[in-house]
């Protein structure tokens, strides 16, 4: 059995520390927002998780292409890890968005472009795991997974553009159109600190979790191979 690399242990510790700091910045350091009150504090985690979720899905599509070209199983492990971790983070994003929407817009859910795209994307990646589960041959599983990750990564941006044609109330926080939609707010410098630190913290946590998941994938592959050897 391979032992855990020291770098990973360090990364684990760093992840816990940055998560603590990010929580402190979001909960205590950042000022209370004047219109929405305390619930605005979930925004930092909402953005942080959304950011790593998106990055993960892009990584998954790219590693899907890389797998199809190289046929190297390591890309497949990377892709599964990216999809799984991102799906988890995206789930948090969606729930936090919903929790925020309730006091801000007086509804748990609105069919606005970002929310809907997030939900559709989440469904695509749940379908991704259902697809993989139905295939026994590891090579075929990797190929199909790569193709589907690629299709999902391509269709998500178009989904977003299409749904935007319908209607929106989601605030645009970055950029200067913040007054356009209800529920937006402008950030004070302290809020900005918490905001950017949350992005940084979740990036670290994402990398850490990816690393663990990739190692898990390697172990899975080893066990699968051994099973074949022993049964023969």
């Amino acid at each position: 059995m391979q032992s855990k690399p020291i770098a990973l242990t360090i990364l684990d510790i760093v992840s816990i520390i940055v998560l603590g700091i990010a929580s402190y910045l979001a909960l205590v350091f950042a000022p209370t927002e004047a219109v929405m009150g305390d619930v605005q504090r979930v925004f930092y985690f909402h953005i942080g998780t959304a950011w790593v979720g998106l990055v993960g899905f892009v990584l998954a599509a790219v590693s899907g292409i890389a797998y199809l070209i190289t046929k190297d199983m390591r890309w497949d492990r990377f892709e599964v890890a990216a999809v799984e971790v991102s799906t988890m983070f995206f789930f948090i994003t969606i729930v936090l968005g919903s929790i925020w929407a309730r006091p801000a817009w007086n509804t748990w859910w609105t069919w606005d472009p970002r929310l809907t795209t997030a939900a559709v994307t989440e469904l695509i990646y749940i379908a991704y795991f259902m697809l993989r589960q139905g295939i026994e041959d590891p090579d075929k599983r990797a190929r199909f997974g790569a193709v589907y990750a690629l299709l999902g990564g391509l269709s998500a941006p178009i989904t977003f553009m299409v749904i935007r044609l319908f209607r929106t109330i989601h605030p645009v926080v970055i950029g200067n159109q913040s007054a356009e939609a209800q529920g937006g707010f402008s950030m004070t410098p302290d809020m900005r600190t918490a905001f950017f630190f949350a992005l940084f913290a979740f990036t670290i946590i994402f990398i850490d979790m990816m690393w663990h998941r990739i190692r898990l994938g390697g172990l899975q592959e080893k066990v699968e191979q051994l099973k074949l050897n022993v049964s023969i």
Binding site: L27, V35, G37, D38, V39, R41, V42, I99
Partner: peptide
């Protein structure tokens, strides 16, 4: 400022 701390706690 409206008290929305319940939502915040739920979120975290």
């Amino acid at each position: 400022i409206p008290d929305t701390s319940g939502y915040m706690i739920a979120g975290f």
